[in-house]
């Protein structure tokens, strides 16, 4: 039988998904999306109630990929310097020496980002955008790869500063984990403590391999009909009055990056409309806002509306 040439990276990535899935039970799709986000050099926002495994997912990913993980717990009194680091006077050298903050890590877990003040939030988001930290007039590059997983509690909770739309756009994807299904929850309750499981995880990839995979993503082929499809989706989001604002060109680029990473994960060297459909909910959910007439429409519904309006090219 004729089949597309097998892609070695797919097997490695499948193993990663499987290992993370052994800790986060019944959430394979969310794990794949998180990995896709990482491969597409994007940052991830996980929005959910406490206790649904946000932090565990970040740790499991970090360990499996062999990345150095730092966790920053955001609180209302957290200051930008607590994240980025600060210059401290060193008596022996008789000079100010920069002490890097926790953001200088390959995988930063920004827990409950919406508890911090907007000033602190934007310090992190600027570092994400620039890939470097500027302090005392010196720019210090962040490590490569650099990946932020931020978690956020739903806005209805007290004492939070919800991220404004312009900041939401910095995250390639937004995921919700949701409650596990009955079987996964039973396995979770009956099984070992997650923290001990995490310690036993062995790295399957290293930072170098991850960078190579990211480069590989960019070679995934985008055929003209696929670009047609992506463009049709963007256009529909712009002139459908159900949406307050359409998807920006930057969102379009992000969509294609994510579709490529998803295709790589699926073991293909070309992206299909299915890949675009798979990543679109996570990608567009936080970028589309309903027009006033439809206040309350849930993000998933908006994305479904968008997908149902645009036919797949034949």
């Amino acid at each position: 039988m004729h089949a597309p040439p097998a892609f070695a990276p797919a097997d490695r990535l499948a193993a990663v998904v499987q290992q993370v899935g052994s800790v986060i039970l019944g959430k394979e799709r969310a794990i794949r999306l998180a990995l896709t986000c990482l491969l597409a050099r994007g940052h991830l926002l996980i929005e959910d109630l406490p206790g649904l495994g946000k932090t565990t997912l970040a740790h499991a990913l970090g360990r499996t990929l062999g990345l150095e993980v730092r966790r920053i717990q955001f609180t209302s009194d957290l200051l930008p310097a607590d994240i980025l680091g600060a210059a401290v006077y060193d008596r022996e050298q008789a000079a100010f020496v920069f002490h890097p903050g926790p953001v200088f890590a390959q995988l930063v877990l920004a827990d409950e980002i919406n508890r911090a003040s907007p000033k602190t939030q934007s310090a992190l988001l600027e570092a994400m955008e620039e890939g470097q930290v500027t302090s005392d007039g010196h720019s210090r590059p962040l490590p490569v790869p650099f990946f932020v997983i931020a978690t956020q509690n739903p806005m209805t909770q007290l004492g939070t500063f919800p991220l404004p739309e312009s900041q939401l756009d910095r995250f390639l994807m937004r995921l919700t984990l949701g409650y596990p299904d009955a079987r996964a929850e039973r396995a979770l309750l009956a099984g070992e403590d997650r923290r001990r499981l995490l310690e036993r995880l062995s790295p399957l990839l290293g930072p170098g391999e991850l960078t190579a995979l990211q480069a590989r993503c960019e070679q995934v082929h985008l055929a003209p009909p696929l670009l047609d499809y992506a463009q049709a989706l963007l256009a529909q989001s712009r002139f459908d009055p159900a949406f307050e604002t359409g998807l920006s060109p930057r969102a379009g680029q992000a969509l294609l990056r994510a579709a490529r990473a998803w295709a790589l994960l699926e073991g293909r060297d070309h992206a299909l409309p299915e890949d675009v459909q798979a990543v679109l909910p996570a990608l567009a959910g936080h970028r589309l806002r309903p027009a006033s007439a439809q206040v309350g429409a849930r993000p998933e519904e908006l994305v479904r509306r968008l997908l149902s309006a645009v036919p797949v090219p034949v």
Binding site: M1, A223, P225, H270
Partner: peptide
């Protein structure tokens, strides 16, 4: 499935 994969690769592949 074979037909679909062939078509997808031909139409969307390089």
């Amino acid at each position: 499935s074979a037909i679909a994969r062939l078509y997808a690769a031909l139409r969307y592949g390089a």
